[in-house]
């Protein structure tokens, strides 16, 4: 058995995975088309509106842009905000066959 929390009151730290993997109940996932994504096309840091709008902070402002699917809840805000329409929401069930 792993270590048990000794705190007598409930608490959590600001850390990734503190609340367990919260992406497991997602039913839509964002897929980025790198041929349309502005930072990928320009080859430099640009746009990143998806990173700015993501309510879960799971978008990495990198080249290319990456989304951490362990914690993405599939809300679709990134797809909605992308000015290049580079992000498509795909049904998880479709993806799994």
């Amino acid at each position: 058995m792993k270590n048990r929390d000794k705190n007598i009151s409930a608490m959590s730290t600001p850390a990734i995975a503190e609340g367990g993997k919260t992406g497991d109940w997602r039913d839509m996932r964002p897929v980025i088309d790198q041929k349309k994504c502005i930072p990928s096309i320009k080859g430099k840091a640009a746009c990143y509106l998806c990173w700015l709008y993501c309510p879960e902070g799971v978008v990495k402002a990198a080249i290319p842009v990456k989304i951490d699917l362990d914690y993405c809840k599939g809300c679709g805000i990134c797809a909605e905000e992308c000015p290049a329409q580079a992000i498509t929401m795909i049904k998880e069930v479709d993806d799994n066959g």
């Binding site: 058995m1 792993k2 270590n3 048990r4 929390d5 009151s9 409930a10 608490m11 959590s12 730290t13 600001p14 850390a15 990734i16 995975a17 503190e18 609340g19 367990g20």
Partner: peptide, 27 residues
């Protein structure tokens, strides 16, 4: 920094450091 009294689920929770945190009933 930490958050005191976050939402506690009915079940036990493993935190980022791999420590098992109590659920509501344990509290």
């Amino acid at each position: 920094p930490y958050n005191i009294n976050p939402v506690i689920f009915p079940w036990l929770r493993e935190n980022a450091e791999g420590i098992i945190c109590d659920g509501y009933m344990e509290m």
